[in-house]
Design a protein around this nucleic acid. Structure first.
Length: 637
DNA sequence: CTAGGGTTAG
């Protein structure tokens, strides 16, 4: 961080004049004892007082002032007009020397106070010092950090005025700046009219387009570019992941490997993130091995992403193993692990981990609390949840965001405290969004409270009228209350508004091939066998006391018809297919895009006992791990 | 002497 430039030879003569030496009375400044070679103070001072101490220390101990890092001295003085010696010190600097300004700018732009670089740049202009291309480069860097578009435009004007139009480094920095400030049109315009481009120009555009969610546009550029390096591939893979296209990300990664390029740390992180989204455990494991074999095995980003990948693939134990063997952990590692335990319904362990984290001296952030609140919500720990919610602002000065309120509403309404939840919604300082009302609606369904649900759906009709999920829940609530006309009315409303129901699907991956099932699916080549196997299983299930719960079927029809529907739910098809195509005793892993259905949940518990297998289901909210007739969610979900 | 692009938890 402190790459200060020492102009060793010239500093004592040119920079700190005898006049200055005289102006600091070394005997009146408290300095560390001279026995300690206080290199840290001499090199790393960050306040005027420390600079004063450093100068006094050097004078007192008869050391050359030339060891002081010029750029720090100058930037400190330039930025601290109240410092009594600032002007004098500053006057000793050759103010017309652009390299001195550049050194200061570089340090500031790279450090935590990029805003000072901008300030210094303006001051430099007021001293009538002409910027050169390095000045522009450093200032642009600060502009990107601060998203300071207007300063960036000033620099752009200099670039034009000073004739740097063909300097690719500067043009690329401008591309980056415009795009990251949201001025994508300016960025594209510049990109289009650039006399020439290099690989960096293309990579910037790919990254930025993908960040804006335009993965197709990014891929078009990726396909067009004349040359690609590892960063191009990585940028595009990351772009697909961020645009919710993990399959494309993995396909591209495979293609990259075929060209003979080897993934580096960043590529590995991107691919692991794709595996996490897809639940692609086998590939994830392969990448883990590859990463361990490579020299970048101790990369903290990779470990963090591995934790997330294993969690999202349902391998809590593997995630724990990665977490345990990390030598250093960041808040991301802790938060990911806590969130993972929450997703798997292990609230006690999540809270334990939180305490351990606090003991280690790591400060929680807003994401950590989201994980903790999730844990409480998934296990119905009402008082603990309330306590943590209060604690986050009181003890850690983190004000709850809309997501935290969403968690609390979920926690309260799921636990049956609909009134408390409603009060929280109406009293919260932020305008409740669709997610908040959606959580409330979900609670209403569990509590079978039609009236409250109607209030929620009114709000949701305004906040998120195109989201099919809310209509489905409402219609479900009516259906469960046997209010078929109302249920039909909601369905019609949905149709009138042109809202399409998201088709539910479940998938299972066997030997690297992912098989997807939708409800009633008879397209799979093994459909007949699946249905037969299910009928056999059903007999065993009935003898264990399984009774089909036809109330989850929304349509008004005969009971036997309902059962038929029920038995063709996508998760059941995927499970039976899995049982048929894996070895006895092997864990079955299923993914579902929606929440798992109640009847399937009951059925899976019984089946896990009959077939003596662990069945792990990842639904859109959390994991259910079925084993010996029980589910890890303890039926609270 | 000095400059530009790709990374993790919700």
């Amino acid at each position: 961080m402190l790459h200060s430039v020492c102009l060793a030879s010239s500093l004592s003569n040119q920079f700190l004049s005898p006049k200055l030496k005289g102006s600091i009375d070394a005997n009146n400044v408290q300095t560390p004892t001279s026995e300690i070679p206080n290199t840290s103070l001499v090199h790393h001072f960050s306040s005027p007082l420390e600079l004063k101490q450093a100068v006094a220390f050097l004078i007192k101990t008869n050391k050359p002032l030339s060891v002081l890092p010029l750029s720090r001295v100058a930037s400190l003085c330039a930025l601290t007009p109240n410092f009594p010696f600032a002007q004098q010190i500053f006057n000793c600097v050759d103010q017309q020397e652009v390299s001195v300004w550049n050194s200061c700018l570089r340090n500031l732009a790279e450090g935590p106070s990029a805003i000072d670089a901008i300030f210094l740049f303006h001051q430099m202009r007021s001293y009538n010092v002409g910027p050169d291309c390095f000045t522009c480069s450093f200032v642009l860097k600060a502009c990107v950090v601060l998203l300071d578009l207007s300063c960036g435009r000033i620099v752009h004007a200099y670039v034009e005025k000073l004739g740097f139009q063909s300097n690719l480094v500067l043009l690329n920095a401008l591309l980056h700046l415009y795009a990251s400030c949201g001025a994508m049109a300016d960025s594209m315009l510049l990109f289009d009219k650039m006399p020439q481009r290099d690989i960096v120009s293309w990579n910037i555009m790919i990254t930025q387009l993908a960040k804006k969610g335009d993965a197709d546009g990014a891929f078009e550029l990726f396909s067009q570019m004349p040359d690609r390096n590892l960063r191009s591939w990585t940028a595009m893979i990351t772009g697909f992941v961020h645009s919710g296209k993990p399959k494309e990300a993995i396909r591209l990664f495979t293609e990259m490997e075929e060209t003979g390029l080897r993934a580096n740390e960043v590529t590995v992180v991107a691919v692991l993130a794709a595996c996490a989204d897809l639940g692609a455990l086998e590939l994830g494991r392969r990448i883990h091995e590859y990463s361990n074999k490579s020299r970048f095995r101790r990369n903290i980003h990779i470990s963090n992403t591995l934790i997330d990948m294993y969690i999202k693939c349902g391998c809590l134990e593997a995630a724990k193993a990665v977490f345990e063997e990390m030598k250093e952990r960041t808040i991301v590692s802790w938060s990911a692990m806590i969130q993972g335990l929450a997703m798997h319904g292990q609230a006690d362990e999540a809270l334990e981990l939180f305490n351990e984290m606090i003991k280690t001296g790591v400060k929680p952030n807003e994401v950590t609390f989201l994980g903790i609140l999730h844990a409480c919500s998934h296990m119905g720990l009402i008082n603990k949840g309330r306590e943590f919610f209060a604690s986050m602002s009181r003890d850690y000065n983190i004000s709850p965001q809309i997501e935290h309120y969403g968690c609390m509403v979920d926690l309260l309404s799921r636990a049956g405290l609909l009134q408390d939840a409603y009060e929280l919604i109406t009293n919260m300082p932020i305008k409740p969004n669709a997610v908040v009302w959606g959580s409330f609606l979900g609670g209403c369904r569990i509590q079978k409270d039609v009236e409250m649900a109607e209030e929620a759906i009114r709000q949701l009709g305004i906040l998120d009228p195109l989201n099919d999920g809310y209509y489905i829940i409402m219609s479900n609530i009516y259906a469960e209350a046997k209010r078929w006309e109302d249920a039909a009315r909601v369905r019609k409303l949905m149709k009138d508004r042109g809202v399409k129901k998201t088709p539910g699907w479940s998938s299972i991956t066997i030997a690297g091939v992912t098989h997807e099932f939708v409800a009633g699916d008879d397209n799979h080549p093994q459909s007949e066998e699946i249905f037969q196997r299910w009928d056999k299983l059903l007999e065993q299930m009935r003898s264990k006391g399984y009774v089909p719960n036809t109330s989850v079927v929304l349509l008004d029809m005969e009971e036997t018809e309902k059962e038929k529907y029920l038995y063709r739910h996508s998760e059941k098809l995927a499970l039976v297919f899995g049982l048929m195509n894996t070895k006895p005793g092997e864990t079955i892993r299923i993914m579902k895009n929606l929440r798992v259905c109640e009847d399937c949940h009951a059925a899976f518990k019984v089946i896990s006992e009959i077939v003596k297998r662990e069945i792990v289901v990842r639904d859109r909210n959390r994991f259910h791990c079925f084993k010996d007739g029980f589910c890890s969610c303890k039926d609270y979900w």
